[in-house]
């Protein structure tokens, strides 16, 4: 599966990411974060449901 496992609670990845987003996107951070979350959710859900395999199996370019 392509879904990453739940991060340890001590790590607080959500908060760290929100702070990074704020630095990059300022007042629009929440909007961009929401759009990205929706997109990633679609990607993860599709991967869970369809179980796609890499093509080509070996990367063309490393």
């Amino acid at each position: 599966s392509n879904r990453s496992s739940a991060a340890p609670p001590s790590d607080r990845p959500g908060e760290r990411r929100a702070a990074e987003m704020k630095k990059l996107y300022g007042k629009d951070a929440a909007k961009i974060l929401a759009m990205e979350a929706a997109m990633q959710l679609t990607f993860d859900r599709n991967c869970d449901r369809k179980q796609p395999k890499y093509w080509p199996v070996i990367p063309l370019k490393l």
Binding site: N2, C47, L60
Partner: peptide, 30 residues
């Protein structure tokens, strides 16, 4: 289908490869 947000992988369907059709696939953006 969809891209992950870091633009590392594209999730696609009905991939027409030179050797046939793969119903579900991931393409590495690189």
């Amino acid at each position: 289908g969809a891209s992950d947000i870091d633009v590392l992988n594209f999730q696609v369907s009905d991939l027409h490869t030179p050797i046939g059709v793969q119903k579900e696939a991931l393409i590495r953006c690189h």
